[in-house]
Design a protein around this nucleic acid. Structure first.
Length: 414
RNA sequence: GUGGUAGUAGCUCAGUUGGUUAGAGCACCAGAUUGUGGAUCUGGGGGUCGGGGGUUCAAUUCCCCUCUACCACCCCA
């Protein structure tokens, strides 16, 4: 292996992989647009505080996964580990409160210093959508429906399943947290080491523990449904009612918890069994407190993010590249003609591969290798009669076409 | 971050119980075919056996460290 390696957890996107990648993003963007989401983008890095203050001081992302650095001007900056905080910052600094409800679609690279695995990279790509400024559950339903529609459009609706839960509003969440902490404190000695740590940082996470001993304790833990206040219960009923009306199937999962602090009410994940431990393919929820805690006007929000690499792995082979037409001049005079001709044909919308050197045999081989739909041969005799020999690479049939008619003739290969 | 499995040609792999020039298939290049691709045949290039150190007369093979990928945990998209 060469000593020159890509940085751990980063990938090159070679043309074939890039096509698969773009298909996912473009399909998602096109579907999201039908749901009324406009694409926008925020910078790839922000002041570190944007993430530190919003994701929660105890989250793994903030405590050990951020790519943080001091730039030459002395500013503390961080490569974004997720997109929502940046959108919220943009909402505040661009004064978008008057554009509410705001519906946006974003896509781009994210960075987390995690230990890489399949489906888990240090530079990875997400697409996400957000609705900001709608307090009611209709927005949650619309966001989930758009996500389901995207998965369906990608042909992987059957490979994913929607898990749904509610975290309640701030009041419910706080109360339930207290109840949970009290319960788990009674079983402190039987909890796993990880979960004792979680008890300090994010007690709700214990509900999701994979440790067998923990699971026994969790089985007897208080049920969140009993601790939701009326408003939270009504809100959740609005979400499930909307999904039912749209025939969007879901599984209620009381153990589904979000890792990031800013979530309230609805939490959901589209999961798959195809990717091992990295089973979440699209995940999100409501974040009513986020913009307020960042210092903006109290504004509700809901959205999700999906991992492009994970979606790509579910999607299978990418679409083939557009087949070019190989333009093959033979002889110096023909070279000069072909150079100008290639420009004209490209301007007309053709994908033209103008070969570089080599004899005819060699160039035909190249035409075959690049999967050319047709080869256009221009030699001395063709040149004298102002024609080209057009060979259909699929059938092997050839015909002479006047140079003036070439553009029309090649239209079939576009 | 913790534990585990693995790294031999561009790719998929074989092999070496430590011993001369490390192999195959596919891919690539050239020729057979100096104006015609795919098939076939012939020939060719390409490897510091992931990297570093140690043991040894001798290491791709044994030992240690390290890097990377993968699996589980953790976390999450």
């Amino acid at each position: 292996m060469a000593s020159l390696q890509p940085v751990r957890g980063t990938h090159d996107l070679l043309p074939e992989a890039m096509r698969a990648h773009r298909r996912v993003i473009e399909t998602a963007r096109e579907v999201a647009e039908r749901y009324g989401f406009d694409e926008m983008a925020t910078p790839i890095f922000e002041f570190t505080d944007v993430f530190r203050r919003t994701l929660g001081d105890t989250s793994d992302i903030v405590t050990k996964e951020m790519y943080t650095f001091t730039d030459k001007g002395g500013d503390e900056l961080t490569l974004r580990p997720e997109n929502t905080a940046g959108v919220a910052r943009c909402f505040i600094s661009e004064g978008l409160a008057q554009d509410v409800p705001l519906k946006v679609f974003c896509g781009g690279p994210m960075f987390r210093h995690e230990r890489p695995q399949k489906g888990r990279l240090r530079q990875f790509h997400q697409i996400d959508i957000e609705i900001i400024g709608v307090p009611g559950p209709q927005a949650d339903v619309e966001v989930i429906a758009a996500g389901a529609a995207i998965l369906k459009a990608l042909g992987i609706g059957d490979l994913t399943a929607l898990q749904l839960n509610t975290l309640g509003d701030a009041e419910s969440r706080g109360k339930f947290r207290d109840v949970l902490v009290a319960y788990f404190n009674d079983h402190l000695n039987d909890l796993s080491e990880d979960s004792r740590d979680r008890l300090e940082r994010n007690p709700l996470r214990i509900l999701d523990s994979k440790d067998e001993g923990d699971r026994k304790i969790v089985a007897g833990a208080p049920d969140y449904a009993d601790h939701l206040n009326q408003e939270s219960a009504d809100f959740f009923a609005g979400v499930t009612g909307g999904l039912d009306a749209l025939d969007i199937a879901y599984t209620l999962d009381p153990k589904l918890v979000r890792g990031l602090d800013y979530y309230t009410h609805t939490a959901f994940e589209f999961t798959t069994t195809e990717l091992g431990a990295q089973d979440a393919v699209m995940a999100g929820g409501r974040y009513d407190g986020l913009i307020g805690t960042m210092g903006g006007p109290e504004t509700p929000g809901v959205g999700w993010a999906a991992g492009v690499e994970r979606l790509v792995m579910l999607c299978g082979d990418p679409p083939p590249a557009r087949r070019p037409v190989a333009l093959i001049p033979i002889g110096e005079a023909a070279e000069a003609v072909a150079l100008e001709l290639s420009e004209a044909l490209r301007a007309a919308g053709n994908r033209i591969d103008l070969g570089y050197g080599g004899n005819l045999n060699r160039r035909m081989k190249r035409a075959n290798k690049i999967a050319a739909a047709a080869a256009v041969l221009i030699g001395e005799d063709e040149l004298q009669r102002d024609v080209a020999t057009v060979r259909d690479m699929e059938t092997g049939e050839q015909e002479e076409v006047a140079l003036a008619a070439l553009e029309d003739h090649l239209a079939r290969y576009r």
